[in-house]
C-alpha cells in the first residue's frame, strides 16, 4: 500500500487561484450591495417625484393629499418657527416620554405576568380565559375611558400605551416560558439549581428571543397608544398636532407629523435591534450572514 499525496508545487498554484476567486467573490458582493442601495434610493426618488409632479399638475389634489414639498415646508416651519402649541421638540419629547413610559411599564408587566403564569399551571388555567377576553376587546377604545378617568395629562396616554404593549409582550413571554426545553430544565435541576435559579438562568434566557421579538412590535403599539391618546384629548404632543392640522384641513401638517413619528419609530427600532444583538450574542448567525 502506498499513500498518494498531491505534488507540493500544485499546492502553491491552488492557493493563488483560491485568493483570486476570493477577491472576485468579494467584489461581486460589494457590487450587489451597491445595487440594492441604489435601487432603494431610485424607488424613493421616483415615488416622491411622481407625487410632486402629480400635485403640480393637479392629478393629485394637494389640498387633500398634500405634496412632498408642502410636507417639507411644514416640517421646516415647525422646526424654525415652532408649532401652534409650542416648539416642535417639546411635542416630540412629550410623545416620546409617554411612549417610553408606557412601553417600559407595559413590557415589564407583560414579562413578569408571562413568567409567573408560564411557570404556574393553575394560575395559567384560571387566568387564561380572562386574558383572552381582555385581548379581544379593541383596546384603543379604552383611550376614552382613560381620558375621562385620568384627565388630559400624561397619565391617560401612558395608560393607553401600557395596555397596548402589555398583552403583546405577555403573550410572547408566556409562550417563551412554555417552550423552554424540558431537558435543559431537568439538567439545571440535577446540577443543583433552586426553582428561583431555574427561572433566572434557564427560563428567562430561553424566553428572551420571544420577548425581544415582541418588543419590536410593541414599541410601535406604544407609539400608537400615546398618539391616539393625544388625539382624543391633550394639551401637548404629536397626536394633538395631527388633530389640530386635521381640524384646519391642513393635509401637509398631518403628513408632516406622520413623517416625524416614523423617524422616531425607526430610531428606536434601531436601538432595540442593537440591544437585541447585544443580549443574544450567543445565538448562531443565520447561514447567509456567516460569510459576509
Amino acid at each position: 500500500m502506498t499513500a498518494i499525496s498531491p505534488a507540493a508545487d500544485h499546492a502553491a498554484v491552488r492557493d493563488a487561484s483560491i485568493a483570486v476567486a476570493e477577491s472576485m467573490a468579494k467584489a461581486q458582493l460589494r457590487l450587489r450591495h451597491a445595487l440594492v442601495i441604489g435601487l432603494r434610493l431610485a424607488i424613493l426618488v421616483v415615488f416622491l417625484g411622481l407625487w410632486e409632479l402629480g400635485a403640480d399638475y393637479n392629478f393629485i389634489d394637494p389640498f387633500f393629499f398634500a405634496s412632498p414639498s408642502g410636507i417639507w415646508q411644514q416640517i421646516w416651519s415647525w422646526i424654525t418657527e415652532g408649532t401652534s402649541q409650542g416648539p416642535l421638540w417639546l411635542q416630540t419629547y412629550v410623545t416620546l416620554e409617554e411612549t417610553f413610559l408606557g412601553f417600559v411599564i407595559g413590557a415589564l408587566g407583560g414579562i413578569a405576568a408571562g413568567i409567573i403564569l408560564g411557570r404556574n399551571r393553575l394560575l395559567a388555567d384560571v387566568f387564561s380565559i380572562y386574558i383572552k377576553i381582555a385581548n379581544s376587546v379593541p383596546r384603543v377604545v379604552l383611550g376614552s375611558v382613560f381620558i375621562i378617568a385620568l384627565g388630559l395629562g400624561m397619565a391617560s396616554k401612558v395608560a393607553l400605551a401600557v395596555v397596548m404593549v402589555f398583552f403583546v409582550v405577555f403573550a410572547n413571554a408566556f409562550q417563551g416560558v412554555r417552550e423552554a426545553d424540558r431537558a435543559m430544565i431537568a439538567n439545571a435541576q440535577i446540577l443543583g439549581a433552586s426553582p428561583f435559579q431555574i427561572t433566572r438562568t434557564v427560563i428567562i434566557p430561553s424566553a428572551m428571543s420571544w420577548i425581544l421579538a415582541s418588543l419590536h412590535v410593541s414599541f410601535g403599539f406604544a407609539l400608537v397608544g400615546a398618539v391616539v391618546g393625544e388625539f382624543l384629548g391633550a394639551k401637548q404632543g404629536m397626536g394633538l398636532l395631527i388633530s389640530t392640522a386635521q381640524g384646519a384641513f391642513n393635509a401637509n401638517g398631518v403628513f408632516a407629523a406622520m413623517v416625524i413619528l416614523a423617524v422616531m419609530a425607526l430610531v428606536v427600532e434601531f436601538i432595540i435591534t442593537r440591544f437585541e444583538n447585544y443580549v443574544v450574542k450567543w445565538r448562531p448567525a443565520p447561514f447567509n450572514e456567516q460569510g459576509a
Binding site: 431537558a183 440535577i190 428572551m208
Partner: peptide, 29 residues
C-alpha cells in the same frame, strides 16, 4: 446532590459559553 446526569438530548445552555456551562453546577450549589 450526589447525582450527575448526562442527557440523551443536548442539554447545554446555549446562551452560556463553555466555561459558564461547566461552572453552572458549582455556582448553583
Amino acid at each position: 446532590r450526589d447525582i450527575g446526569f448526562v442527557f440523551q438530548a443536548d442539554a447545554l445552555f446555549p446562551w452560556r459559553s463553555v466555561i459558564d456551562n461547566v461552572a453552572a453546577g458549582p455556582l448553583y450549589r
